[in-house]
Every structure is written in structure tokens, then in C-alpha cells.
């Protein structure tokens, strides 16, 4: 386990990262899981729930708390699609690319969204308003093709519906 090279790099990263004070709630969660085997994924889930992604300085903090290598944490984060390393936009648009949706034209919906928002799958718009993602089957196959924006489900979509749906969310922004 002792890997000096890794420690050296890690220390350099640790020094370059702004310290962050974690909320009491998160610290409690970490405390609760700290001594349980296999705790890392459960802790990361809570971090992502709070921040929407896994910020580097939080990852560093966890490495220290659990006394594990930062590389181990990133190894896990990058293996699982669910964990994100970049801050997501205010609204998360998820296009279902499950089989039923695919057969009923999900690709056209996806093309339309990318065209309208000017971003690709996995990216966030410059104004930080939308992040575009794909998911696999959300269990509404009867409504295929389906997308969700945050917790709202939109079904039986046609490419021409998309602009109208998106505008509901951009209007909210100007209203703020």
C-alpha cells in the first residue's frame, strides 16, 4: 500500500486545494460510516446529493477523514456513471435512451435538444442553466420517448415539442 510517489503527488494536490468546512450533517454521515467496511460509495452518494457533484476539495477531505488515497476515491468516482466531477447546471435534462425510447425516436429528441441548447450530451450550457444527460429506462416506457427535467417527466415527445418545454425553464430564469 505504501506508495511514496503517490503520497508525494497527493500532498501536492492537498496543498493546492482550498480547505472546505463540511456541514455538520455531512460530517455526521461520514462519522456514521467511517468504520464500516465498504463505506466509500455510500459517503460519495451523500456528497453528491448535497453538492450535485463531487468537488475536489470535498474528495480531499474524505481521503483524509477515511485515511485512504485520493486515487482510490477517483478510481471509484470515475468507474460509476452516477458520480459527477463537474458542477451541474441548475436544471438537469435527462433523455431516456432505453430500448423502448430508442425505438420510438429518442435520438431525434436528443438531436433537437443538443441543437437547441448548443451543447452535447454530458455538457452544461454556458449560463449554467441546463445540463444534458442520457439515462436508461425510467420505467415509463408506455410514454416513450421520454425525458425528465429535474423531477418532471415529459412523455410522447416529438422534436417540435422541445423548444416549448425548454422555454418554460428559461422564462423562470428571467423571472428571478
Amino acid at each position: 500500500m505504501e506508495d511514496n510517489n503517490l503520497n508525494y503527488i497527493e500532498n501536492a494536490i492537498f496543498e493546492g486545494v482550498e480547505d472546505i468546512k463540511l456541514s455538520e450533517e455531512l460530517m455526521e454521515h461520514i462519522e456514521k460510516w467511517k468504520d464500516k467496511p465498504g463505506n466509500l460509495i455510500m459517503i460519495l452518494h451523500r456528497v453528491q446529493q448535497i453538492f450535485g457533484y463531487i468537488p475536489l476539495n470535498v474528495a480531499v477531505k474524505i481521503a483524509k477523514e477515511l485515511n485512504i488515497h485520493l486515487a482510490k476515491i477517483y478510481g471509484v468516482i470515475t468507474f460509476y456513471h452516477f458520480f459527477k466531477t463537474e458542477k451541474p447546471g441548475r436544471h438537469k435534462i435527462s433523455i431516456c435512451m432505453g430500448t423502448a425510447c430508442y425505438l420510438k425516436g429518442a435520438e431525434k429528441i436528443s438531436d433537437e435538444l443538443q441543437e437547441l441548447l448548443g451543447i452535447e450530451i454530458g455538457q452544461t450550457t454556458k449560463d449554467g442553466l441546463f445540463t444534458l444527460e442520457t439515462v436508461r429506462c425510467i420505467g415509463c416506457c408506455g410514454l416513450a420517448p421520454v425525458m425528465t427535467i429535474d423531477d418532471e417527466v415529459y412523455g410522447n415527445l416529438k422534436p417540435e415539442d422541445i423548444a416549448g418545454i425548454i422555454s418554460k425553464y428559461t422564462n423562470i430564469k428571467t423571472g428571478v
Binding site: 460509495i41 460509476y80 452516477f82
Partner: peptide
């Protein structure tokens, strides 16, 4: 006997 929940993460 006790049961715990563990979450997958999209793999």
C-alpha cells in the same frame, strides 16, 4: 438478522 441498503451508482 439485519438488513442494510447499499446503493449502486449506474454501472
Amino acid at each position: 438478522f439485519d438488513i442494510e441498503i447499499r446503493l449502486g451508482a449506474g454501472a
